[in-house]
């Protein structure tokens, strides 16, 4: 009888999982946001690589596992590609660069290269918007919000739609 009861309870618990909608993880929401950013920005012509939007991200970024699921998705006439890169790789092949947490010196170096190559930079690290990343995502009250650095977007040749600007926090670089 005990076993029967245990089996019933177990079955109920397992079955009941199917009744609920799944809560997205932080990284899933961030990835969906990145996909939406691409829908609402215009990059410079040269930044589209053979009709592809190439998202580059440094290896070891915890977001990569989610972001690579965007591979093959369409944004208007473009197809999303994903590449993991090393610190010293050339950014020429990248349309978008996801920036991970690093020290200020190496961040500055990477941003300079990204501005030069007109690469659209995105990050999810506190304070990185003010340090010069175009769109930075952050958590507020357990929700993922984002800020746009308009100076950085001008430098990177990224035109941002008013729809994005209207819901983002608009910030400027802090010169140090």
């Amino acid at each position: 009888m005990g076993r029967l009861l245990a089996a019933t309870v177990l079955a109920f618990i397992l079955y009941s999982f199917s009744l609920f909608s799944l809560p997205p993880t932080e990284y899933q929401v961030k990835t969906a946001l990145i996909y939406n950013f691409l829908r609402f920005v215009d990059l410079e012509k040269d930044s589209y690589k053979n009709n592809n939007i190439v998202i580059c991200s440094f290896n070891n970024n915890a977001l990569n596992k989610e972001i690579q699921k965007l591979k093959g998705a369409n944004v208007s006439q473009y197809v999303i590609d994903f590449q993991e890169i090393q610190d010293d790789d050339n950014l020429e092949k990248c349309s978008v660069l996801i920036i991970d947490k690093r020290d200020d010196h190496s961040l500055r170096k990477i941003l300079e290269r990204a501005y030069q190559q007109k690469v659209f930079t995105i990050s999810d690290i506190d304070g990185y918007g003010e340090k010069g990343v175009v769109i930075n995502m952050f958590l507020k009250d357990d929700k993922v919000k984002f800020e746009i650095n308009t100076e950085a977007s001008a430098k990177s040749g990224v035109k941002i739609s008013s729809r994005l600007l209207s819901i983002a926090k608009i910030i400027k670089s802090i010169n140090k």
Binding site: E26, V29, A32, F40, L164
Partner: peptide
Amino acid sequence: DIFSKDIEELINIKVDT
């Protein structure tokens, strides 16, 4: 499922942090 959501909805989803 998330992809079908608007950006305005996305920024109001409570995530597991």
